[in-house]
Structures are given as structure tokens and as C-alpha cells.
Amino acid sequence: MNLLTRFTQHWAVFLVAVAAWELLTRLAGSPFFPPPSTIAPIMVDQWFSATFFDHMVPGVGRMLLGWALAAVLGVALGILLGRSARAIAYLGPLFAFMRSIPPPLLVPFFVAAVGVTDMQLPTIVFGALWPVLLNTVDGASGVDATKVDTARVFRLSPAQWTLGVVLPAALPKVFAGLRVSLSIAVVVMVVSELVGSVNGIGYLLVQAQQFYDLPVMWAWIVTLGVLGYLFNSLLLAAERRALAWQPRHSLEAQTLATGG
């Protein structure tokens, strides 16, 4: 099937779904489920008013910064530790335990430790770090014996070995970890703003809840979906570029299975 028909089909399905949503909500007439025609103008207002700079930019900025810090830290540590069987034996279970702590539970601790106004960023970093770290360790330790021998025979420098062999070999796993971390970062962003913040989408969601303003809540939920879709698509595009050397099939299969 060519790209154009696929694209058309894609949006046709989407439009039908929105139409059905409109129809059903109008028929039901429930105050809890406003129709998309009510939600859309509110969204436009949110995106094209001071709200955008006062709430979306700071909240989303913290999320992206936290995720980026976690990514850099996780990849660097993962590449360093992943080639040492001993480091993995000692630290692997600890990392797995850290990842198992439900990230939203970190909010109360960081609220107490750094205060309500500053706790979002460290909470996001802490929550998003472990999937990147564990996946990088996994990818780095998976470099096969033949590549290790090849690198030794050609007497690669440590820098060339780390950046030229281990990092690219681990990259598919790293990207899988980055995707998981991104969705955790979004979750932690929202929860931390719901619990306590002076700005951000979560903060406005709580306000809307207090005023029983359901259309506004729905608008923020849809906005979060749009943002999630946007960031995920950007990350996927980056991944496709970085992993263009992989055979097509494995790339697509991997994207599907990790819910790309």
C-alpha cells in the first residue's frame, strides 16, 4: 500500500472516531462527558494564550530537562558498568529494586526533602533514570565475543572501543529504555504537579477539578495526549535516524513491541 492511501486511511479513521465521539456525547448529554466541539475551543485558548507560557512551558520544560538528565546519566553509567560482569552482579539487583519503586511514590519524599516548589525536577530524574540505565547495561553487556576479539585484534583505543563499538551496539536497547523513560517522565510530571506545584498542566487540572470545570479538564487531558504523541513521534524519528543501519524488520518489530 502506498504512503498516501495509508495516510488518508489513518486520518479517515481518526475523523470517524471524533465524529462518533461527538455524536455519542451529544446523545448522552452527560456533564461528565462534554463533546469534542466544546473541548476543542478551550484547547485552542490554552495553546494560544498566556497559559502556554505560564504553565505548559515550565511544566513540560522540567519534564524534558529531567528526562534528558536521566538519559545522559543513565547511558554514561550504563556503558561504564555494563562491560563489567562484577559490577552487574553487585549492582544489578539494586538497580532493579530502584526501578521497581513506583515512581509517583517518590513525590512525597522529594516534597519533604526539597520542598514543593523544587521537587518536580529531581523526582522526574530519579524516576526516569532506571529504565535507561538498565537497558544500557543490558545492551552494553550484550556485545558478542567475536566483536570483543575483533576490537582487541585491531588494538582499538579505549575511547574507540567505548564510543565506536559498545555504544552503537547498545543503541537499540538504549532507545527502548529512552521510550519507557519518556512515558515515566510524563507520568511523574503530572503526578508531581497534581500533588503540589505553582504551575504546570497538573496544577491546572487540580484547579479545574476544584471548580468542577469538566470541559477544561478534558481539554488538558487531550492536550497531554497530543504532547505525548508529539514527543514520542520525535523520539521515534530520532531513533529511526540513529538506527538506520538496522534491517527494517527488526526496527519495526521492536517499535511495536515496546509500544512505540
Binding site: 472516531a17 509517583p104 512515558s183 510524563v186 498542566i201 487540572l205 478534558w218 495526549g225 504523541y229 509500544g259
Partner: peptide, 17 residues
């Protein structure tokens, strides 16, 4: 197509609703 639009909505954002 629908899943692509639904999945990015973080479940925690639905808590207040």
C-alpha cells in the same frame, strides 16, 4: 490509529476526572 492517539494520554492525568 485510535490506539496511537489514546495511548499517549498518561493514565495519571485521568485521576481528577
Amino acid at each position: 490509529t485510535l490506539v496511537e492517539f489514546l495511548r499517549p494520554i498518561p493514565s495519571v492525568a485521568l485521576i481528577p476526572l
